[in-house]
Amino acid sequence: MGRLGGVATLTVSSVLSKRTPNRAQARMSKAKSAPPPGCTIDINDPQVQEAAIRIQASYRGHRSRKELREKGPPRVLQELKDVVLVEGSAAKLECRVSAFPDPFIVWSKDGKELKDGPKYRYVFEDPDVVALVVRDGELSDLGKYTVKIKNPFGETADSACIIVEVPAKISKGPDSVKVKKGSTVTLKAEISGEPAPDVGWLKDGEDIEEDDRVFYDIGDTATTLTIKNAQPSDAGKYEIFVENNLGVDQSFARVDIL
Rank of each mutant, 00 (worst) to 15 (best):
G137R: 02
G5Q: 14
I55Q: 14
M28F: 07
P21Y: 04
A160Q: 06
S171E: 10
C161K: 15
L132Q: 01
Q78T: 13
S192V: 06
T11E: 09
E67A: 14
S64A: 14
R63A: 12
Q250D: 11
V97E: 06
K148Q: 12
A90P: 01
K71W: 04
P73R: 04
G72M: 04
S17Q: 09
L4V: 09
Y59W: 09
A196V: 07
T40S: 14
V166T: 14
A90E: 13
N245Q: 13
S89D: 09
P118T: 09
D204I: 08
S58W: 05
G117D: 11
I257N: 02
K66V: 10
I218W: 03
K237Q: 13
P103C: 05
I191H: 05
D211I: 01
I227C: 07
G88C: 06
E239S: 11
Q231F: 04
P174A: 07
D42W: 09
A52Q: 12
D126V: 02
P101E: 04
R135Q: 10
E94Y: 06
G6T: 11
F252W: 12
P35S: 01
T20M: 12
S159P: 03
F100I: 00
D256S: 11
K203H: 07
E67H: 06
P167S: 12
L68G: 05
Q78E: 13
V97N: 06
P103F: 06
N229V: 02
T20Q: 08
N151M: 00
V97F: 07
I218V: 15
Q250M: 09
R19F: 09
I170W: 00
S192N: 09
A160F: 08
A189D: 03
V129W: 11
D136T: 06
S183M: 08
E87Y: 06
I55K: 14
Y145W: 02
A91D: 00
S14R: 12
K92V: 11
I53N: 10
A253W: 01
D136Q: 13
L142M: 09
L258F: 06
G111E: 00
I162L: 13
D126T: 02
K180R: 14
G247R: 10
K32Y: 08
E113Y: 04
R213L: 00
I53M: 11
G72C: 01
T40M: 07
L114F: 01
M1N: 09
V12G: 05
C95V: 05
C39T: 15
E194Q: 14
L10W: 10
S171Y: 05
R23M: 09
S33L: 08
E165W: 03
G2Y: 08
L16V: 12
V106E: 10
E165K: 13
S140C: 02
D82G: 03
